[in-house]
Design a protein around this nucleic acid. Structure first.
Lengths: 320, 320
DNA sequence: CTGAAAGCGCTTACAG
DNA sequence: CTGAAAGCGCTTACAG
């Protein structure tokens, strides 16, 4: 910029004015400056500008692994909103490691990102407090953080979807319904089980607690006629277990997540599914709400999850 | 930092030394500084440091849409390499729009990223020349740019995979083999068709040019007994067409891409598949090679693609 | 071992 | 309409 000023025979400030298209420059001066910029191949150093301005026009996106389908689509949703605001996006993966999450977040904060969308790890998030105090906006996605109850979050209505799914199974005549879904303490499992219990209760069915923490092995030895799954991986597990044991007519599987080519699956597959990009966009909107000056209490946005049936027909009805 | 210096009663430089754990500070002074840092909740502004240092320790990843499976996994591979080097990653999507690619790239360059991994759009990339001259490293992934032949690229051996796939079909007795894959000018289609032609030629089979640009409609009216697909979407299309027309016994489908739950697909599915994360890591290595001082000519790295059979058996043999 | 000055590339606040 | 100075938060190159 100094070189440009020198070459155009003007002061630094004039170059700055031209570059920012501020008013108050004669067309002649402007074109002289523009010429110099062209000749020198000058391009403003955005970082320097932002250092002075105090903002960086960047946000960070932190997920377990943004290489997986769910996180990637979610991140893309965040990017869209960021882009509308002229912001650039940092992306980082924690591999579900709280230590790594903290490192990543802190180094992003050290770069002075304006905001952060975080799919939180199980760890606590107190380290964020001082950053938030320092002015950085943080929004959680997919699950709320353990403490930090005041933070904004964009979530999925897994509770409602599980309730619907289980009610649907019950309507098909199922009474012994199980849940296969990994870590019982995880947010998604708790949400799904809440919905499950609610539907069972409404139908007047009692829940055998053994049903709520199935494994493939236990599923084989269980009397359940239907199983609700808590993740893509558990859906695949359940399917494999049921098919390999030749039980696909006897045990109905309700999966979690969208699967391509699901219409050609042999047993047919009904799933609970939601649009991760929508969660990302919702998180982005919450974030830019904060960046736009919102100072109120934490908000929660729920994205709907729906029951989708694909492939060769319905969930099989209960066989008496 | 000024506040910290004031509070600790030392000069700015001393604080800088402590923060960077440079030698030459007495333990007492150091602990005084550390104390002040603690009390003030000081955290170094990385951007300011990097402005002075001249590097930003960031790289950018630009893809059609990093929310899709292929790009996301690829980007995650780049992130891994970046992380090993202590770099942060920007991610942006072009939606296959050359204009958007240029905008994104240029704004990343204005932030002075040290390097860029780009899944290029069909546009030309001359706008990158001046940036590369200015010292930014650029590596292409998945497909090479149209011009800019000198650039590094991490690619997939689609050519070899198609050759293998078609040879395999031929070994199963197929002689009339088609290709369904969208834009004929795209890099992937050209690679796949090259491999296809090579295998057909080696087997002494002649290619009816109509076979090389199938659509679902043309596939129905064609005499081909097998079809090679050029993308995930075209795989789904081919499958749908074949299944709905009741031709799944007569027409063998070789898909492209990895599909979850493929083992439970009704007709069974053989696909050409590769590991996108590996392409990302390869691109990352090329990039950091440049950042590490490599100044030689452009390099190409090929990641293998393999033929995988899932589900209820093999590609169906040709029915006489 | 410690510090005062200059500068990275830009903008802000003020004068002319 | 244009410019000279100060400063964003840090580091570099030099003295003491």
């Amino acid at each position: 910029m100094k070189d440009v000023a020198l070459r155009a025979g003007v002061a630094l400030k004039t170059v700055s004015r031209v570059v920012n298209s501020e008013p108050g420059v004669t067309p002649e001066t402007a074109s002289r400056v523009l010429g110099a910029i062209e000749e020198l191949g000058f391009r403003r150093n955005e970082s320097a500008r932002l250092l002075r301005t105090g903002r960086t026009a960047t946000v960070g996106f932190i997920a377990d692994n943004w290489g997986d389908r769910e996180s990637a689509a979610l991140g893309r949703g965040v990017e869209e909103v960021a882009r509308e605001h002229g912001f650039l996006l940092f992306a980082g993966s924690t591999d579900t490691d709280p230590v790594r999450e903290e490192q990543l977040t802190l180094s992003l904060c050290a770069r002075r990102v304006d905001g952060l969308v975080i799919v939180p790890t199980p760890g606590d998030h107190d380290y964020l407090l001082s950053e938030i105090e320092a002015g950085i906006a943080a929004v959680f996605a997919l699950r709320p953080p353990y403490h930090l109850a005041r933070a904004d979050a964009a979530l999925v209505d897994e509770h409602g979807a599980a309730r619907t799914a289980v009610a649907h199974l019950i309507a098909q005549g199922h009474e012994r319904i199980g849940y296969l879904g990994g870590d019982q303490a995880s947010y998604r499992t708790r949400q799904l089980l809440d919905g499950y219990r609610e539907a069972m209760g409404t139908a007047g069915l009692t829940v055998d607690e053994a049903w709520t923490s199935l494994t493939p092995q236990r599923l084989l030895n269980s009397t359940v006629t239907a199983v609700l799954c808590g993740s893509r991986e558990h859906t695949a597990l359940a399917l494999r277990t049921v098919v390999e044991a030749g039980m696909s007519r006897r045990v109905a599987v309700v999966g979690f997540g969208a699967f391509e080519l699901a219409e050609y699956l042999a047993p047919g597959l009904t799933v609970i599914s939601y649009d991760p990009a929508e969660v990302g966009r919702a998180a982005g909107e919450l974030l830019f709400g904060r960046l736009g000056g919102y100072r109120g209490p934490g908000r929660r946005v729920y994205v709907p999850a729906t029951l989708v049936t694909r492939g060769s027909g319905e969930v099989p009805p209960a066989v008496p």
